[in-house]
């Protein structure tokens, strides 16, 4: 399966990534290879297998509505590349 430049550009846009012209070719090839590899699964005969979204046969794993301690502010913001005293700080968001 071939991922063309246009698709790479679309995916990059959805992911908010800016990539170079050169990278568009590289990622196009890499993504195509990954899809080809996954395509292998189609060789399996799954006619008698019920489709599922989950491999574990479990349902209704639930928790009670009981509050637990949250992270202290310093821990929450600890890994942020940019921050103010109380907030994460990011480049200006424009829709």
């Amino acid at each position: 399966m071939r991922i063309d430049r246009k698709q790479v550009e679309h995916i990059a846009k959805l992911s908010r990534l800016s990539i170079t012209e050169e990278e568009k070719d590289i990622f196009g090839t890499q993504l195509s290879n990954i899809l080809d590899y996954i395509e292998k699964l189609n060789e399996l005969d799954t006619r008698d297998v019920t489709p599922t979204s989950h491999v574990i046969e479990l349902t209704n794993v639930l928790r009670d509505d009981t509050p637990r301690t949250s992270l202290p502010l310093e821990d929450a913001l600890g890994n942020a590349p940019d921050r103010t005293e109380k907030f994460y700080r990011v480049p200006k968001i424009i829709e």
């Binding site: 509050p67 202290p72 929450a76 109380k86 907030f87």
Partner: peptide, 18 residues
């Protein structure tokens, strides 16, 4: 999906967890 409080009007970023 987690035990963080939903209280309205708390200090920013004090009701989060991993």
């Amino acid at each position: 999906f987690c035990g963080c409080s939903t209280k309205f009007g708390s200090e920013p970023n004090t009701q989060t967890c991993p």
